[in-house]
Amino acid sequence: MVKRVPDRVPLLRAEEVVKHFPAGLGASVKAVERVNFEIYPGETVGLVGESGCGKSTLGRLITQLLPVTSGNIFFEGVDLTKLGGEKLRQKRRELQMIFQDPYSSLNPRMTVGDIIAEPLENFGLLRGRAKDKRVQELLKIVGLNPYFNNRYPHEFSGGQRQRIGIARALALRPKLIVADEPISALDVSIQAQIINLMEDLQKEFQLTYLFIAHDLSVVRHISDRVMVMYLGKIVEVADSAEIYRNPRHPYTKALLSAIPIPDPDIQAKRRIVHLSGEISSPVNPPSGCRFHPRCPIAQVPTPCADLEPPLEEKARDHRAACHFSEKVPVAV
């Protein structure tokens, strides 16, 4: 595994990134709110959170499929949010994405070969025979028969389609790949195939991943570091083994306790942390700490309801946004 050296230059740095979607009548959905983080070359960063926490939006901000409301995203020192048109298009070569839905992410009217060749054509990289050869090579790399290049997506299974999506993302030899829930639509036995493939490709092509998922056990397996998101904010960042052993945010703790472990004896002994109420609306997020209305250890009103806890270093390479991070119980 790649070990991070603290003073290395990040591949990507997000600074105070904000995304608000208009929700009518002057209101807005605060999907991502002042988020800061770095991704270092060669590492896999996991981004977890439940539906509606803003993780997919954040992924699309990084790949600039959505414009930010404010803030900066530096990729190799260049602020992507300041780029437009052709300059941004050129940058896309280094920044690719793998999508969640293997059915909707491939154009049903195009052959697999055309789908994988499109990124190459967009930048006029290869033509004719050389292009076909590269497409077949990419199919081979992701474990598909290279002679299936003239087939249509609907002839493939979900797992095979996800491999096609991965081949498309690899075509431009990107540095960073944002994978948005790449396995959650797949069957259990196929998930392991895709995870293994992604790990192998990372080694082979020195890729950096931002791996977005809702399943903390999968994220822990594939990631070097994990970021936990709640209601548009990153609430905890740490090494993936550390975050499991020693969560410093009560939300992380609750998430961990809720993940079912395939062992009846362990399941019988475990206690889930009950979160009161429902996830708050991102249109009107709670004051102070956004998690406080559901938090089992919150002290209301002061400080949790009126003071927003900063995401700060609680231990070496372990940041959490909680006023009482030392009170979070250790894992089962």
């Binding site: 499929l65 298009r89 896309r92 920044l95 992410s105």
Partner: peptide, 26 residues
């Protein structure tokens, strides 16, 4: 809004090609 159009944009496909190759045929 479909992911394959997003994917095309992410891989640097120009709007005219997105319209002619991805949207119109579908």
């Amino acid at each position: 809004e479909r992911e394959f159009v997003e994917a095309a944009r992410a891989s640097g496909t120009r709007p005219n090609k997105i319209l002619s190759r991805h949207i119109l045929p579908n």
